[in-house]
Amino acid sequence: MTSRWTPGHISPITLQLVGPQSWTEVPALLCYDPTDPFAVRIAFGEGEPDGGDGDDGIAWLVSRELLQAGLEHPTGDGDVRVWPAHATADVLFLHLRAPSGEALFELSRGTVAAFLRHTEVLVPPGSESSLLELDQELDALLSNGGPDSPGR
């Protein structure tokens, strides 16, 4: 299997799926790729963070900035919301909503904070835009991915 996803940092994490009468442990991976510097991928049920051939896992892209803010106060709108628990210092809630349903997870605030510190070593906050090749991407889009566009 060939992967196009180039990991910068991967951290295993166990989330607790909060159900109406019980909680279920859900193993996942927090994945950060400096070539997509604004996003953190949360890969559920996957052996590989790219969700390659044969894997039936699910991956969500979440804003790195949203996760960082969610460590301190409720944040997010719509499909992804994050907030710290008031009663327990190491608990972070993650609410994901899709057309097929929604899920509320409880996860370790400390694990997420440590993961984000590693991503900040790779790409300091505020420097994300400098890593993106926006001019090249725009040229490729405007030329319909023609022969003059690099790497297309």
Rank of each mutant, 00 (worst) to 15 (best):
P49G: 14
H73K: 15
D139M: 02
P150Q: 07
S100P: 04
V18Q: 11
P49L: 07
I42F: 07
L92Q: 09
Q16M: 08
A113D: 06
E137S: 00
W83N: 00
Y32T: 03
M1D: 02
D55H: 13
S63L: 01
H118N: 15
S63H: 06
G101C: 06
E65K: 13
I10R: 01
H73Y: 07
T6I: 10
L66K: 02
G126I: 09
R109S: 10
A113T: 08
I13L: 10
G8F: 03
T2N: 15
Q68H: 01
P84A: 07
L94S: 01
A98M: 00
G78R: 00
H95M: 07
A89H: 14
T2M: 14
S22V: 06
L138A: 12
V112L: 12
T35F: 13
D148G: 14
V112F: 06
G126R: 08
E128Q: 00
P125C: 07
I42S: 01
D50F: 05
P84R: 04
P74W: 10
T88H: 14
P74V: 10
L116R: 08
Q21C: 00
V112M: 15
R4C: 05
N144W: 10
V123A: 02
E72W: 04
P37A: 13
L134W: 04
L67C: 00
E25G: 09
